[in-house]
Amino acid sequence: MIAGDSPLPAEDVRLPERGFAIDRRKALTVALLCWAGFAAMVYAVTHGLTAGFDERGLLVFRSGPDLAPRGSDLVLESVRDVTALGGVFLRNLFALAAVVALLFLKLRREAMLFAITVIGGWLANTAAKLLVGRDRPQIVPHLTEAGGESFPSGHSFSAAVVYIGMALAFAALSRRHSVRYTLVLGAMALSAMVAWSRVVLGVHFPSDVVAGWLGGAGWAFLAAALLYAPARAAADSAAAARFDAPSGLRKTASAPPR
């Protein structure tokens, strides 16, 4: 702060105005396309149609008789960093932080919808794993610890749910299409990188991560299309009003700046 300047009075801090609601028809269209792809992958895996694709996908990142990973140690460490973004700790930490930030910004509807999206996505992924029950690949050595069923990839599914759902929630802060699409496309790219990292580390077949990403993205868009109304009803209830930002921050965005 420059010497002599006085701090901005708390009553002059203004929260942004909600500027965007998800186009539910577009979200539903994207969701249906993703779920159609997910269903196709389930059919292909359960009918043994992905063996060649899966083997080639795993081997492309390996070399030599011991099937060591391609690239330097720095590349491998970077891949592990990327995969951690879809792990239980960081993924849930970011999700919790996003809910808190949305509540602080008085976007209770978006906070409620995002929370429902994340919880519902976890249930959907767990159900899919139990139904298919695929073992993890043993074609190449694993470069990180992994347990449980392989299909669909939990990292891929959950990363798509959390990061795409988060982007859809925070898109409510802007009226500009370019900003909203950049947020959503960036989240899709980030979650796709998490999915790719699981194949590089050898703990998932390519078909696992393709299905996981499609299923997670499909759930995030489906929730945005179909669950906004119940989330809005819950968020607008008297009980939810307790989570509003402090009264000192409740100046509306329409008030003229000083």
Rank of each mutant, 00 (worst) to 15 (best):
S6H: 12
P7L: 14
L8F: 07
P9I: 02
A10S: 12
R14N: 07
F20D: 00
A21N: 11
I22S: 10
R25W: 11
T29R: 14
L33T: 08
W35L: 15
G37H: 02
F38D: 00
F38M: 04
M41Q: 09
V42G: 08
A44S: 12
V45T: 15
T46Y: 00
G52W: 05
L59S: 11
L59H: 05
R62K: 15
R62D: 00
S63N: 08
L67D: 11
L67S: 11
L67M: 12
P69Y: 06
S72E: 09
D73H: 08
D73P: 14
V75M: 11
L76A: 13
E77G: 13
E77T: 12
S78P: 07
S78N: 11
V82H: 04
T83L: 08
T83C: 08
A84V: 02
L85Q: 10
G86H: 11
V88T: 10
L90G: 03
F94E: 03
L96Q: 03
V99S: 02
A101Y: 00
R109M: 01
A111Y: 08
A111C: 02
A115T: 09
A115G: 14
G120I: 06
G120S: 02
W122A: 14
W122Q: 14
W122I: 05
L123D: 01
N125E: 11
A127E: 02
L131V: 13
R134N: 03
D135F: 04
R136Q: 08
P141C: 01
L143K: 03
T144I: 12
G147I: 01
G147N: 11
G148S: 05
F151P: 13
F151I: 01
G154N: 02
G154C: 01
H155C: 06
F157L: 07
S158F: 13
V161Y: 03
V162P: 12
M166W: 10
A169D: 00
F170R: 04
A171I: 04
L173A: 06
L173F: 07
R175H: 13
R175I: 03
R176W: 04
V179D: 13
R180Y: 11
R180I: 01
L183C: 01
L183H: 04
M188P: 04
M188A: 15
L190I: 08
L190S: 05
S191L: 03
A192W: 14
V194D: 13
W196R: 06
G202T: 01
V203D: 13
H204Q: 15
D208G: 00
V209T: 07
G215H: 09
G216E: 04
G216H: 05
A217F: 06
F221D: 01
F221G: 06
F221A: 09
F221S: 03
L222C: 09
L226Y: 02
L227V: 11
A229R: 14
P230R: 00
A231G: 09
A233Q: 13
A234N: 02
A239D: 12
A240W: 12
A240T: 06
A240Q: 05
A241N: 06
R242W: 11
R242G: 12
F243S: 02
D244T: 06
A245T: 00
P246G: 00
S247A: 15
G248C: 10
T252W: 08
P257D: 13
